[in-house]
Amino acid sequence: MNLFRLGGDLLHVFSIFVLTLKIKTSKNVAGISLRTQQLYLLVFCTRYLDLLFTNPFRSGLTMYNTVFKILFIASSAYIVYLMRKKYKQTYSVKDDTFRVEFLIVPACLAGTLFHYRNTFFEIVWAFSIYMESVAIIPQLYLLQKTGEVENLTSHYIACLGGYRALYLLNWVWRFFTEPRYRHWIEWIAGTIQTALYADFFYYYFLNKTKGQKLKLP
């Protein structure tokens, strides 16, 4: 555990809190991609299958991971529930149209072809890493289409980008401090995932320095 990793995890939790806050305070889910949220739920459910056979009391880190894993699954399921049931009327159904099969199918292929060990859980785990790296795309697509979003929604995406950036720093840190730390699947997928936020960040900071809502050209 290092400060980059801890900061990344906390920022990830914070981003979900910001999203929930946006939904609760505005009582609407406009501008939020249900497709991205469902992909995240899929990512967490497939990545954290190990919850079923890991003793959370094995170590401090296992307990830490278990708490976060349950939190991520539960909170993303809750957001999907809010979007599909409670605030269904406000959902941007006409604009949230990115075809997720273009993301799921390649992620399945990549997971099947490139994984660490030839076991069911390892292949599903690798799929979840590839899936997460592109899961934000429907949200960015919706953003492009609507052109302007509420502040909290843009803060949410910015926090997610920040979480990814901190994870990259965490890997650099671990690469130099831990012997044999060679996690190439995470590195490649994580770099792609972080790079996807580059364009968003550009406009985010451009609009924030002018004190405006996020507006895309």
Partner: peptide
């Protein structure tokens, strides 16, 4: 083994 790629991250 499991520890080698123990997936100790989230």
């Amino acid at each position: 083994n499991q520890q080698q790629h123990g997936h100790d991250e989230l």
